[in-house]
C-alpha cells in the first residue's frame, strides 16, 4: 500500500501576534512548524503502513527551509520526502497551490508507483481555507473524505476503506473505494513518541527535490499571476451566538419554539 501525505510548513500560530492597527499578522521571528493536522496525517499513515505493509511518502510545496517540516515527517516514520520548490510558485493561492501539488503528486506516482491513500490536513493553521486538499482531490477526480476522524477498516483485496468523518451536526461513516483522498482532523489519533532510530534516519535522509525542471508544469496555472484569489479585507468575525437551551415538557418546548420562529415565518410568507 502506498500512502502519500501532503504537508505544509506554517508559522507557529501560538506565537504569531496580531498588529491590531493594520489587522495583519506579525510573522517576524516566529518559528516555522509542521502544520499540526499533518502531524496526525503522517502518524495515521505510518500506523496503517505498520499494520498493512507498504510505504509512506510525503510532499510539500514551499521554500527550501520547508525541508525542516519534511524531516519531522521522516522522524515520525515516513519513508521518503519530496520538496517541490520553484520560484514560479511564489504567491500561489489555493487554486495554484493545489495545481502545483497535483503535478508534484503525479511525478511521485511516476517515480514511486500508484498511490492508494492520499492524506492532507483538514486545513493549514496560517491560511485556514481548507481548500487545498479538496483542490488536489478534484484534479485527480478521487473520492474525497474530509474531516476524517477514524479509519474503521481497510480492505486491500476488495479495495475499499470504511471511514468516519465529522460533520457540522455529528458523524458520518462512509465506505469508499481505493484510491481515496482524506483530509484529517487532529482527533484522528494520539501522536506517539517516535523511536530514536527514526530520528537518526530522518537526520541522515536525503530530501528529494522537485521543481519546474523535473515536474511537468503548465506555467499558465502557476504562481501569483495565476492566482485569482484576492484579499479584499481582513476582519475579526463576529462571535457566533451560542444556542439557547429551552426546557420544559415536550409541549412547552414546542410552544416556545413556535413563538420564537413565528415572526420569521410571517416575514417569509
Amino acid at each position: 500500500m502506498h500512502i502519500l501525505v501532503f504537508v505544509k510548513q506554517v508559522p507557529d500560530a501560538s506565537q504569531v501576534r496580531v498588529n491590531y492597527e493594520t489587522g495583519t499578522l506579525i510573522r517576524e521571528g516566529v518559528p516555522a512548524i509542521l502544520n499540526p493536522f499533518e502531524e496526525h496525517a503522517v502518524e495515521e499513515a505510518v500506523r496503517l503502513k505498520d499494520e498493512h505493509g507498504g510505504k509512506v511518502t510525503v510532499l510539500t510545496m514551499g521554500p527550501p527551509q520547508a525541508s525542516e517540516a519534511l524531516k519531522q515527517c521522516l522522524a515520525r516514520g515516513a519513508d521518503k520526502a519530496y520538496l517541490l520548490s520553484d520560484r514560479i510558485f511564489a504567491g500561489s493561492d489555493t487554486l495554484a497551490t493545489s495545481y502545483a501539488l497535483y503535478e508534484g503528486a503525479r511525478k511521485i506516482i511516476e517515480l514511486e508507483g500508484d498511490v492508494d491513500l492520499f492524506f492532507a490536513g483538514k486545513q493549514a493553521i496560517d491560511g485556514d481555507t481548507a481548500q487545498t486538499g479538496p483542490g488536489i482531490a478534484t484534479r485527480f477526480d478521487l473520492p474525497l473524505v474530509t474531516y476524517l476522524i477514524k479509519i474503521n477498516e481497510i480492505n486491500l483485496e476488495e479495495k475499499y476503506v470504511v471511514a468516519t468523518r465529522l460533520t457540522e451536526f455529528g458523524q458520518e461513516t462512509v465506505k469508499v473505494p481505493i484510491p481515496v483522498f482524506f483530509t484529517v482532523e487532529e482527533s484522528l489519533n494520539v501522536l506517539s513518541h517516535s523511536p530514536l532510530p527514526y530520528l537518526i534516519k530522518a537526520e541522515k535522509a536525503k530530501i528529494e527535490l522537485l521543481s519546474g525542471e523535473n515536474v511537468n508544469l503548465d506555467k499558465q496555472q502557476c504562481g501569483l499571476k495565476h492566482s485569482p484569489t484576492m484579499v479584499k479585507k481582513a476582519f475579526t468575525p463576529e462571535k457566533r451566538q451560542r444556542g439557547a437551551t429551552l426546557s420544559g415538557t415536550l409541549d412547552e418546548v414546542a410552544d416556545q419554539i413556535a413563538s420564537k420562529i413565528a415572526p420569521f415565518l410571517k416575514k417569509v410568507s
Binding site: 513518541h193 517516535s194 523511536p195 530514536l196 532510530p197 530520528l199
Partner: peptide, 9 residues
C-alpha cells in the same frame, strides 16, 4: 539512555 523507544546509544 534516552526517553525514546529503542533509545539506547
Amino acid at each position: 539512555r534516552t526517553d525514546r523507544p529503542e533509545g539506547d546509544i
